[in-house]
Design a protein around this nucleic acid. Structure first.
Lengths: 145, 145
DNA sequence: AGAATATAGGTGTAGCTACACGTAGTTAGT
DNA sequence: ACTAACTACGTGTAGCTACACCTATATTCT
């Protein structure tokens, strides 16, 4: 079992491999986005929120495939930095999330940095491999449901 | 820009997509590994440590592509649970990491559960797509260096 | 031998993640 | 109208992650 040939079962763990890739890519995007003052996760939240706002926390969490309570904690920080705000909806339980003007500006500043990081990956892999990778990642997400 | 056709740039962010996949797959493995008492990251650490022990923290961190200080914090928990231990090396700065007997047992108990989770992904994708995905993840890690 | 440098590792701080549980407001059933 | 069930959201707790900074030991250079 696992002599010279082949890769150990542990090294083939798809979970460990994805987690490892997550650590590497997040550090890479964090470094490139650094000058914007946004972390990779924060940029991700703002860029999607810009498309789907106004939206409730639950729907936003679903859109991000993120636990609702995780999103709540992340939104606290963005709110403290005045990058987003929330206003009451018709249903008094709901809060509708919106970007502030500061948030729009921070996002606009970060876009070229994000593009730089994204291009590094996208261009090196090429369009075919890149799109295939995105598709496979989505397949994995679907498989866990 | 980004009307009905195509996917928005934000949705194509490889960082956000990998992070999303990480959340999904980690929850999936955590759920399946639940009965073993090990989390997905803990199983990952133990299964690799079993192969490379005895090893220093720095070398283990490198082997896991993980920040050294992150590893330190994770090892604290495993040590408290008596799943691993460390002993001094010849160089008095070093600590050599080892699995305890409890750790070996916990790992042995968790293996079939891990196999169950892994099979779900590996069998559905098939060997070709699965191996290609692992390779592409490694490519992404290499690109961030 | 002594000073400068390099290596191994820990601590303070802070952000990301999610489960279990709780509260307030809404809707459905009778 | 009243109760039960459901929905939207927050809080307590705890693990995973990494940067900046620190200490202790070992090595190299002069």
């Amino acid at each position: 079992m696992n002599h010279q040939t082949g890769t150990s079962a542990a090294r083939r763990c798809i979970c460990a491999n994805i987690r490892r890739t997550d650590r590497a890519i997040t550090q890479f995007y964090d470094a490139v986005l650094g000058p914007s003052g946004l972390s990779a996760p924060q940029f991700g939240l703002l860029s999607i929120l810009a498309e789907v706002a106004p939206i409730t926390i639950n729907h936003f969490a679903e859109s991000m495939a993120m636990d609702r309570t995780t999103l709540t904690r992340n939104l606290e920080l963005l709110t403290e930095q005045h990058l987003i705000r929330s206003e009451p909806g018709v249903d008094r339980r709901m809060r509708l999330l919106l970007l502030t003007e500061d948030g729009e500006q921070a996002l606009a500043q970060a876009w070229p940095l994000w593009q730089k990081a994204q291009d590094r990956i996208e261009r090196t892999l090429g369009p075919t491999r890149f799109d295939a990778l995105l598709a496979e990642l989505s397949s994995v997400v679907d498989l866990t449901k």
